[in-house]
Simulated assay, not measured.
Amino acid sequence: MIALNRSVHDRQKLEAYWKAAGPTFDGWGAKFLSVYTPLTPLELMGPLEGVVLIEFPDVAAAKGWYESPAYQQAKQHRDGAADTEFFIIDGGLVPLEERLPHIKRRQT
């Protein structure tokens, strides 16, 4: 799971979110790989205040955590506090010829 914090509007609310969200990871097998560690911008499409990278055992566990009542309640603290993008990606490597098939169809 990757979270991109694009901008912060209310630091106090964001800190309340961090505090409330922490315990919601218990039982989901989450492994924190990077949480607001220093970043080196190389190619960005806009502002980026911080990044969170969390490994879960699988996509189902990541979705389960995100959709859990505990996280959904904690998430309310973040509403209006920051512009954030969340997404889940599966691990692995897609062969070159199989990448972005939806784009391939559009361009033929």
Results as ranks from 00 to 15, higher is better:
7 S>D: 14
60 A>S: 13
38 P>A: 11
57 P>E: 00
49 E>W: 04
100 L>R: 07
17 Y>K: 09
81 A>V: 10
26 D>P: 02
54 I>E: 00
81 A>D: 09
105 R>F: 02
68 S>H: 01
51 V>F: 00
1 M>V: 03
35 V>Q: 14
23 P>M: 08
43 E>H: 15
81 A>Y: 02
66 Y>R: 12
9 H>I: 09
24 T>E: 08
30 A>D: 11
40 T>C: 14
99 R>C: 11
8 V>W: 07
33 L>W: 08
19 K>C: 05
17 Y>V: 05
42 L>G: 06
30 A>C: 07
93 L>R: 09
35 V>S: 12
67 E>P: 03
94 V>S: 00
21 A>E: 11
36 Y>G: 15
71 Y>W: 10
54 I>F: 00
99 R>A: 11
76 Q>H: 10
93 L>K: 07
83 D>M: 07
63 K>Q: 14
86 F>K: 04
23 P>N: 08
17 Y>Q: 01
39 L>M: 15
32 F>H: 04
19 K>T: 15
2 I>E: 10
45 M>S: 12
75 K>F: 12
5 N>M: 13
3 A>G: 14
68 S>A: 13
97 E>N: 10
102 H>Q: 12
88 I>Y: 09
51 V>P: 01
99 R>D: 00
22 G>H: 09
65 W>K: 05
56 F>I: 01
24 T>V: 02
65 W>Q: 11
22 G>S: 14
10 D>I: 08
80 G>N: 11
64 G>Q: 08
80 G>I: 06
88 I>E: 11
32 F>G: 05
62 A>M: 09
71 Y>R: 06
72 Q>I: 05
40 T>R: 15
107 Q>D: 02
35 V>L: 15
4 L>E: 06
63 K>Y: 04
31 K>V: 11
21 A>G: 06
10 D>N: 14
95 P>G: 05
35 V>E: 02
19 K>H: 07
44 L>P: 03
10 D>L: 07
80 G>C: 03
